[in-house]
Design a binder for these strands. Structure first.
Length: 582
RNA sequence: GGGGUCGUAGUUCAGCUGGUUAGAACGCAUGCCUGUCACGCAUGAGGUCGCGAGUUCGAGUCUCGUCGGCCCCGCCA
């Protein structure tokens, strides 16, 4: 073979059209598929723009070359673009094909363990071991192109709104609260550690103290916690902070941002978004991130249930239980088997079981012995559709709400249309919750969150009743992000640390620098952080965050491609002053 | 930390209440084929049944442990 021509990409396989017919081109790409028909061979050549059919016929000078070509071989093909007698409507380039005059094999390929186009039929495990092959698929190519585009849209938008992109350290201090940190040992100061950021929280607040007023960063964050379909140990967030503003203004900016980002996939996002206090979200949906696509919510039927002649209910109520109800539309026709399954599901979700009620031939029936008249009265009083299935959960209120909320998500799956977007601001979170394990107050959000001004007095008398100026942005039952107005008053910040029962010494050690900064003219400021990966997941209708992270880890925090985490040499350990305990 | 589920050719799977030589499809190899685009036809190669113990005359199948994938609870300020 002649020596390889100098490489220059001028033409994309997937972009050739009828108007290119007659021109001489060179394309580069991977062999997606090959069809040999004796003296005639077709090669589907793939590059990032798509597929092109290459024809090798009797005019091709070097037919023996074809023996060296297989799936995923990298080729440079030169020839003439010709109009096809029989176009292929399935292909964007299907009007034309490339009549090969010269083919250079630029790289051979072993027989791949799977074909990129067949990724849907391949285990995630195998795909992760050969992620570079997986990433050749049209689906992932699309995902990462859109990710790049949305990233750029977000930057442009925030830039237009006057936000400055400022980088913050990846090596900083461990945080005493919140998620576990990924630690990085210091070589110079043996026994001391940096931590990778869980979020740039303190730095972005310091940037407000520095007077930048509007900051943003699309930044990697790290949390050493167990994984889920929508959680990875390292993830990216759109981090925003601004001074001299109230939540309303921030909400409006974020709503415009969402509008702009979702327009990239043709969504027309309606603004402003709904708002709902945390207490209402918990009471009606048993969740602080309700999926509003599901058209039924939780109701409290404790009062009605108290009148029923049921030993089970009486005992539960005597123990302080509440009775929570879900009316499932059209659930009245569920089979006995389906009802049993619902009961089993409720138990799996952490409940004690569920009571059903519905209208049947001749009257109302229930899995609990209750007079049909009482059930009929309940349906009538609550205006419940007679075709609905009423599910009742009797338990201590937090448990009852949690189980009802999970059951609502479970039974509401058929309403979870991916093309429908239900944005929601959840507001007025409690500032603290009681940490049973450590027998002390703990921050619900983080210790820099400001209480509502009217609630500051409650800090001393009834701290658990204090509401924060804190908010989450929820989309379709997924927490897209959250933020708060921050404490900019040093005395208040000190008091909050004290309420968290942090020893004075620790406050000084961990947050001394931060409190000091608040002493030098810290402006009122607030902010938010949005999970960029989750946002992309929802934008693309993917069920797993791993589909929009190029090199993700498995649910046990392993990288199957690189094998990380891995052992290090004794020399490295010695340099760091670290001994491994067996 | 806990619960569920899965692990069998390169891949996706089948393999019954334990039984003799573990199958299919796709992929791969070889040959034939000039208009295919899921090309077609023929022939063939390809297996440590994740790993380790145990029960049994006999284990892909049962038990225990272990490793790994996925889902969920806890956890995720």
């Amino acid at each position: 073979m002649a020596e390889t021509k100098p490489l220059k990409r001028e033409t994309w396989c997937g972009e050739l059209r009828e108007e290119h017919a007659g021109s001489a081109v060179t394309v580069y790409g991977w062999v997606n598929n090959m069809r040999e028909l004796g003296g005639l061979t077709f090669i589907d050549l793939r590059d990032r723009e798509g597929l092109l059919q290459v024809v090798v016929n009797e005019s091709f000078p070097e037919p023996a070359l074809l023996k060296r070509i297989g799936r995923e071989t990298v080729l440079a093909v030169s020839g003439r673009v010709v109009r096809r007698a029989k176009p292929n409507p399935e292909l964007a380039s299907g009007q034309v094909e490339l009549l090969a005059e010269r083919i250079d094999v630029l790289a051979a390929s072993e027989v791949p363990p799977f074909l990129p186009e067949a990724r849907g039929n391949v285990s995630e495990e195998l795909r992760f071991k050969h992620r570079y092959l997986d990433l050749r698929s049209a689906a992932l190519q699309r995902n990462f192109r859109l990710r790049a585009k949305v990233n750029l849209l977000a930057r442009n938008f925030l830039d237009r709104e006057g936000f400055l992109d400022i980088e913050t350290p990846m090596l900083s201090n461990a945080t005493p609260e919140g998620a576990r940190d990924y630690l990085v040992p210091s070589r110079i100061y043996k026994g001391k550690f940096f931590a990778l950021p869980q979020s740039p929280q303190q730095f972005k607040q310091l940037l407000m103290v520095s007077g930048f007023e509007r900051y943003y960063q699309i930044v990697r964050c790290f949390r050493d916690e167990d994984l889920r379909a929508d959680r990875q140990p390292e993830f990216t967030q759109i981090d925003v902070e601004m001074s001299f503003a109230e939540p309303d203004e921030l909400f409006a900016i974020m709503e415009r941002l969402m509008r702009e980002l979702f327009a990239a996939r043709g969504f027309d996002v309606a603004v402003p978004f709904r708002r709902m206090p945390y207490a209402e979200a918990m009471a009606r949906y048993g969740s602080d991130k309700p999926d509003l696509r599901i058209p039924f919510s939780i109701e409290d039927c404790t009062a009605e249930a108290a009148a029923w002649d049921s030993e089970l209910i009486r005992a539960a109520l005597a123990g302080g239980a509440k009775v929570k109800a879900l009316a499932i539309p059209d659930g009245g026709s569920f089979s006995r088997k389906q009802l049993d399954e619902i009961n089993e599901t409720a138990k799996k979700l952490g409940g004690k079981g569920v009571i059903w009620m519905r209208k049947a031939d001749g009257g109302f029936k229930s899995s609990l012995k209750v007079a049909p008249d009482a059930i009929a009265a309940l349906f009538a009083a609550r205006n419940i559709d007679p075709g609905a299935l009423l599910l009742l959960i009797a338990d201590a209120e937090p448990q009852a709400l949690a189980v009802a909320g999970r059951l609502r998500e479970h039974l509401g799956r058929r309403f979870q249309d991916k093309d429908r977007l239900e944005f929601l601001w959840v507001t007025d979170f409690p500032l603290f919750f009681y940490n049973e394990e450590e027998k002390r107050l703990d921050s619900n959000h983080h210790p820099f969150t400001s209480p509502r001004p009217g609630d500051v007095a409650l800090l001393e008398s009834e701290p658990l009743a204090v509401k924060a100026i804190a908010y989450d942005l929820v989309l379709n039952g997924v927490e897209l992000g959250g933020g708060s107005k921050r404490i900019h008053d040093i005395a208040l910040q000190r008091r909050v640390f004290q309420l968290l029962n942090l020893p004075e010494k620790e406050i000084e050690e961990r947050f001394g620098f931060f409190l000091k900064a608040l002493a030098f003219g810290a402006p009122p400021h607030l902010g938010i952080a949005l999970g960029f990966d989750r946002l992309m997941m929802l934008l693309l209708g993917e069920d797993s965050i791993r589909e929009i992270i190029a090199f993700p880890k498995t649910t046990s925090s392993l990288c199957l491609l690189t094998g990380s985490p891995s052992s290090v040499s004794q020399r490295q350990l010695d340099e760091l002053g670290i001994a491994i305990r067996k």
